[in-house]
Write a protein that binds this DNA or RNA. Structure first.
Length: 588
RNA sequence: GUGCGUUUAGCUCAACUGGAUAGAGCGUUUGGCUACGGACCAAAAGGCUGGGGGUUCAAGUCCUCUAACGCACGCCA
């Protein structure tokens, strides 16, 4: 269906044209003076210059042509040259009826669906997820869902850090601790054990201690570098160990991401790109892009109008080893080959921006990526504590994601039990659902690119612009609807009638904007736009609810209309939060 | 040092891409439960949008200078 804003724009544009002006001046926007009107058009002022006429004259001419419009109840020309617009109630209820019919509530599927790879998550194997991984997971997941909602084919890739020095460190530490395992015996030719020689808890302890030791002990570090090189050259025992590490680690990661309701289509990692490196490097050399500088192999990526010097993109270190950049480029090669994406989007900490500028330019310049494929970077800001500094535990250490989630859930559980008269057995589950909304909404309601303050007390509050408040609103609607059916009502009877109060009309106007906001949020890669929209709908509903009797409404057709409006409101809110990556319980 | 980013109400954040009187929430003050969930609603107070200059009918938004803070700047990822 066409969006209401589009229909309004068409209506105004026709009037502009009829009055002898360019129809493009007819663009309608939401009013920024809700006390004066619902929508506005500023085209008369923009056109004043082109036609050498007073804006007010143009506005009046157009307004006169809208006198008996089927869309506008009122279209008046005001002071400098604004067109103040008020929508007809029957037009609006017609829009509501159309929306009800559509599965996606008026969102139009993309005409040309794109294949989009979103690279988010980015955890390292053998290391627990910590709060630093939270934003990528939450933001990436919501962008993925938005893209799909709009009809695109979106592929989420977790892109594990599974190939660097960290792997050598773990292998080295294991060798020191359990050197008699067959993995370390180069003469061993038999089958390695199926069971890994460690648990996830072991790994989580092994890595930090290996990392710490390598910083003090030069020999140890060299040993780890050597182990890394041997692993990369495919030493049999090390490969077997590596597989164990991946298996143990990935199953743990999956569990943790599942708790966040985050899922990936691909569990690829840096290691998957390795097979593509030799050919890629050779090609860059052959085609004259790569040259040696101070022993390293680099590609220039500076451009003429750079405001600062962009260092060359390093392909191979002076010792011939590959590095971050190499892997990222090879990953692009792999993705082009396997998926032919129209876009690759990286949802990564914004501190990596320069790195990605280099990688993108290099990929573009050397033709690894064709012009038709967009390479985009969504850099998100740091999650800070109340003190404005990076979020830490009370002791000052890195906060594990599991612990953070547990803390939130506990807080939520307390509040739910406090506020409930009857103690349900499912309070724990409800706390999880509500807790997740607190975390996700808290994060997503802020602009992704900025740093933000993670304030548990504020996010878990039921008051204000929070996840729990949104869920409360949905639960409240569900509760009314279930009472309606319990009392013998049938949902779906009758039809939505024109609104009879200001608050009812305001709710309909808010609902109507669903498609528009969903599209804008995805287009701008800005989930916070969708959050703002949801909040607006919730507020509109709550004030409507407060002054409207629904179940006790005498007139049956009116009651049916109101019930249908509730159903539509619930659908809009439910769809929107599901795209953000969380859901509402039935009770709370 | 160079570049990028941030700076909006006491606090946490918006502002639909240049439009009218810069909006929300929290906190503060006040009012509202014999209707369907008061975990709600209604209202008040609170602002030189870091500072200066400019562009135009119109600037939080664009240009320029400047200050404070944050981040990044070839062999880590």
């Amino acid at each position: 269906m066409k969006k209401m804003i589009t229909l309004m724009t068409e209506e105004i544009s026709k009037a502009f044209e009829k009055a002898g002006y360019d129809p493009s001046y007819g663009r309608v926007t939401l009013s920024n003076r809700p006390d004066l009107c619902e929508y506005q058009c500023n085209g008369a002022m923009a056109g004043a210059k082109a036609y050498h006429k007073a804006p007010m004259v143009i506005a009046e001419e157009v307004a006169a042509l809208l006198a008996d419009s089927p869309v506008f109840k009122k279209a008046e020309a005001v002071r400098p040259g604004f067109l103040n617009l008020t929508v007809r109630e029957d037009f609006l209820s017609g829009i509501m009826r159309q929306m009800e019919e559509e599965k996606c509530l008026g969102v139009e599927k993309a005409e040309k669906p794109k294949t989009i790879i979103i690279d988010y998550g980015g955890p390292n194997v053998a290391k627990p997820l910590h709060v630093g991984h939270l934003r990528s997971a939450i933001i990436g997941e919501s962008l993925k869902r938005m893209g799909r909602y709009l009809g695109h084919q979106v592929i989420g890739d977790v892109h594990l850090g599974d190939w660097g020095l960290q792997m050598g460190l773990i292998i080295t530490e294991l060798r020191h601790r359990k050197g008699d395992l067959p993995y370390f015996d180069e003469a061993f030719t038999g089958e390695y054990p199926k069971e890994p020689p460690f648990t996830i808890a072991d790994l989580e302890e092994i890595y930090p201690s290996a990392s710490a030791r390598s910083k003090e002990d030069e020999d140890y570090k060299n040993e780890a570098l050597e182990a890394t090189a041997q692993l990369q050259h495919g030493r049999r025992g090390y490969m077997a160990l590596w597989h164990h590490i991946i298996d143990v680690s990935v199953s743990d990661l999956k569990k943790n991401y599942a708790n966040l309701d985050v899922s990936f289509d691909l569990w690829k990692g840096e290691s998957d790109a390795q097979p593509y490196i030799p050919d890629m490097v050779q090609r860059l050399k052959d085609e004259g892009f790569a040259y040696e500088d101070q022993g390293a192999l680099v590609v220039d990526v500076a451009e003429e109008n750079d405001t600062k010097e962009i260092p060359p993109c390093m392909i191979l270190k002076s010792d011939g080893a590959s590095l971050y950049t190499t892997t990222d480029l090879a990953t692009i090669v792999e993705r082009m080959k396997l998926y032919h994406p129209d876009e690759i989007l990286y949802v990564v900490d914004k501190r990596q921006e320069l790195h990605f500028i280099q990688v993108f330019r290099c990929a573009r310049k050397t033709g690894l990526v064709p012009d038709g494929t967009a390479l985009n970077f969504l850099g998100f800001g740091t999650m800070n504590g109340k003190d404005g500094k990076p979020f830490k535990t009370r002791e000052g250490g890195v906060m594990r994601l599991e612990n953070l989630i547990a803390e939130i859930n506990e807080e939520m559980f307390k509040k739910i039990v406090e506020n409930r008269s009857v103690r349900d057995t499912d309070a724990q589950d409800t706390a999880k659902v509500v807790g997740l909304s607190a975390i996700k909404y808290g994060d997503l309601s802020n602009q992704a690119t900025k740093d933000y303050i993670f304030d548990i007390d504020r996010f878990t509050s039921f008051e204000g612009n929070t996840g729990p408040y949104i869920l409360y609103t949905i639960v409240r609607i569900k509760s009314i609807l279930s009472r309606y059916t319990e009392e013998g009502g049938h949902i779906g009877e009758g039809a939505i009638l024109p609104p009879e109060s200001e608050s009812e009309k305001a709710l309909m106007l808010a609902l109507q904007a669903f498609a528009q906001n969903m599209e804008a949020a995805f287009e701008e890669k800005a989930p916070h736009r969708l959050c703002a929209y949801i909040y607006e709908v919730s507020n509109a509903f709550n004030s409507f609810y407060h002054e409207t009797k629904i179940l006790s409404q005498d007139e049956p057709s009116r009651r049916q209309s109101l019930i249908r409006l509730l159903v539509l409101t619930e659908r809009v809110l439910t769809e929107a939060i599901s795209v953000l990556g969380f859901s509402a319980p039935d009770h709370m």
